[in-house]
Simulated assay, not measured.
Amino acid sequence: MTANRADLGEDSSRETARARRRGQRRDRVFDAAVELFVEQGYEATTMDDIASRADVARTSVFNYFARKSAFLDEWSARRRARAFHALPPTVAAGSLRDELSAIMQELAAISGASRRETTALIGAAVVALDLLDDHPLSHEFTSVLRRRRAELRPGVEPSLVGMTIATGYFAILRAWIGPGRPPFDLRERLGDLVDLVLDGAALSPSSART
């Protein structure tokens, strides 16, 4: 019995180590792809280029990312995870407007800290992905809105509001990217988007409390 438990423990440790190494290789491939997209452009970068930069076999790249656009999906997913799932508890304890504003501020901070990268990848995503067709960002916003449905006006559909916010976000981000200085303050513009949408969709603070 003891030997069996030891064997199981060793098997589990080996499996954990293999999973960790696989995750590290996948991250290396992802990082290599993003670097190349920034340096030479999304369209000009091939899967062979990515394999060479990551120092892995070409088949390994396809094992981790079956198509080139999957790198854009992953890039977007990582940004969403930071913005939606890393907020302090005090934000969730506030109002719907507070939570959406905090999410937008975090998204703005991420883009502001990596504007060159954002320019390269959002520009590619607009072409390679349909950002307006049931995008995961719409689902993230809709999830927040459904959880806080009591703060919305009667008859307002959370999915419609979520889609509107996500579409507005992409439109604002698309206008913000590019060479040279940003044309406007991204944090301020995304905050204005939240206010504009919620002024039409949300109950007034006094109504929400009753």
Rank of each mutant, 00 (worst) to 15 (best):
R22A: 15
T16K: 14
G155A: 08
P88E: 15
A6L: 14
D7Q: 13
R189P: 01
A166F: 02
R20F: 08
E43P: 01
W75N: 04
L8C: 10
L190T: 00
S12V: 09
S12A: 15
T164I: 00
D31Q: 15
V38F: 02
L196C: 13
F184K: 05
A93D: 15
R58Q: 11
E151D: 13
H139T: 14
A86V: 04
R18I: 03
D11F: 10
G112W: 03
H135Q: 02
A120Y: 06
E157T: 05
A17E: 14
R209L: 14
T210I: 13
L96N: 05
I110V: 15
I103Q: 11
T46P: 12
P205G: 08
T90L: 10
L121E: 07
E39T: 03
R147W: 06
L121Y: 07
E106W: 03
L137V: 02
E106V: 09
V38H: 04
E99K: 02
A120Q: 08
A51I: 04
A19G: 01
F141E: 01
A201I: 00
D134G: 14
F65E: 05
T167K: 08
L96D: 06
D48E: 14
E15I: 07
F184D: 10
V127G: 00
V126K: 13
P182G: 08
A57D: 15
G112M: 06
D98E: 10
F30V: 00
Q24N: 10
A150H: 11
V156A: 09
A66I: 00
A54C: 06
A202K: 05
A120C: 11
R147P: 00
I50Q: 11
G123F: 05
R53H: 08
L96E: 05
M163S: 14
L8G: 13
E74R: 13
V29K: 03
F30Q: 04
G41R: 01
G9E: 14
S60Y: 11
L129H: 07
G112E: 14
L36V: 02
A93I: 06
I50E: 10
V91P: 06
A66E: 15
A166W: 03
V127A: 15
I122K: 07
L137M: 12
G94W: 03
S159N: 02
D7E: 12
S76V: 00
G200D: 07
R25Q: 15
S159G: 08
V144T: 06
A77L: 06
T164N: 09
F65I: 01
S143T: 12
L87F: 04
G162D: 07
E117R: 09
G41E: 04
R82D: 12
R20H: 12
M104L: 13
L190I: 04
R26K: 07
Y42H: 13
L87V: 02
W176S: 09
G191H: 03
E39H: 04
R153M: 12
N4L: 10
F65T: 04
F30M: 07
G112I: 04
R187K: 04
D134K: 11
R28I: 02
R82S: 12
T167N: 15
S159H: 13
D48N: 12
E151N: 10
D11R: 15
